[in-house]
Simulated scan of single mutants.
Amino acid sequence: MDIGGTKIAGALVDDEGSVLHRAETPTPAREPAARLVRAVDTVVDALSAHPSWGAVRGLGIASAGPVDTAAGTVSPVNIPAWRSFPLVRTMRAHPSLPDGVEPVLVGDAVAMAAAEHWHGAARGVADALCMVVSTGVGGGFVLDGRLHPGPSGNAGHIGHVTVDLDGPPCPCGSRGCVEVYASGPAIARHAVAAGWRPLDGVEPTAAEVAAAARHGDARALAAFDRSARALAAGIAGSATLLEIGVVVVGGGVAQAGDTLFGPLRRHLRRYAALGFTRDLEVRPAALARDAGLVGAAAAARGRLLDVRTPSGSR
């Protein structure tokens, strides 16, 4: 399962990381908690109707954060009705879940990091930051060749690192966070505030801003440059603290391609100024829309492998 502020997706994933079957529904992000649960149930019900459902041995859940993997709860910034919501307990109680399957919760960006390290742009990389830039901004670390989610599952939550001490308020409660500059909605808001307008009847989204930027609209280009600058500041700070060598960027905003990656690399050259950060490489994510699903599967698979491995034999 991959639960975000825009969509709730589910998939059956095999042991090689291939998606066999997929289901999706929009996230009713501003509706009550019970309505959100019904949306999750809709996706699970669609998956359980597939002939491969009986072979399911693990359930990974990637959720927008913050999450608390120890408690099995989620408090997504962009889903107000879920605060310390017991998502693992709720999923465990679903009547279609095969006996013995225990849900494994990870943050959505940590899941993306797991997926990209397993089969994507961070494969074979010892130290990397993998980021999701979409409705929100999140991240996950691979350190010494292993996923590093942290005690609560939130390590790498770069979207809520402050990059402007006097910046605008963030829904998380802080100010000047990367997310209030770099997320898709933030890009669209900034472009509209600067006077850009989408075509009649079209919702102002980051994708529409990106299309305008590709046609040379100065206001659209400035909105992406502002986003890239905030991302670069957050990434440079992470690289300075942890000496990562690769940054993988995915999510809906990353689909803008060079419109985002061009200014991001340019700003990184300015912010990642120390010698040991100057060779930091930025790569687009390889797994696109399925990264959260494949990463959630990787988390469930990893839990199963840990359970099966005899103590002391690793």
Score class of each variant (00 low, 15 high):
105 L>E: 04
28 P>H: 05
129 L>A: 13
265 R>E: 05
187 I>S: 05
287 L>A: 08
207 A>P: 08
263 P>W: 04
143 L>V: 15
125 V>S: 13
91 M>E: 00
92 R>G: 10
142 V>N: 13
85 F>Q: 07
38 R>N: 14
110 V>L: 15
60 G>H: 03
156 G>W: 11
219 R>T: 09
53 W>F: 09
62 A>K: 01
67 V>P: 09
280 L>M: 09
179 E>T: 08
242 L>S: 12
41 D>K: 11
8 I>A: 09
9 A>I: 04
312 G>R: 07
5 G>P: 06
9 A>M: 02
254 A>L: 10
26 P>Y: 06
308 R>N: 11
178 V>S: 10
18 S>N: 15
191 A>R: 00
144 D>E: 15
235 I>M: 12
127 D>N: 09
308 R>M: 09
116 E>T: 12
188 A>I: 00
258 D>L: 01
157 H>S: 11
240 T>P: 06
128 A>T: 14
204 P>I: 10
161 V>A: 11
47 L>D: 06
96 S>G: 14
299 A>N: 05
252 G>H: 04
288 A>S: 10
27 T>H: 00
264 L>A: 10
59 L>T: 00
33 A>D: 05
136 G>W: 02
306 D>I: 06
110 V>H: 12
64 A>Y: 08
25 T>E: 04
158 I>W: 03
92 R>S: 11
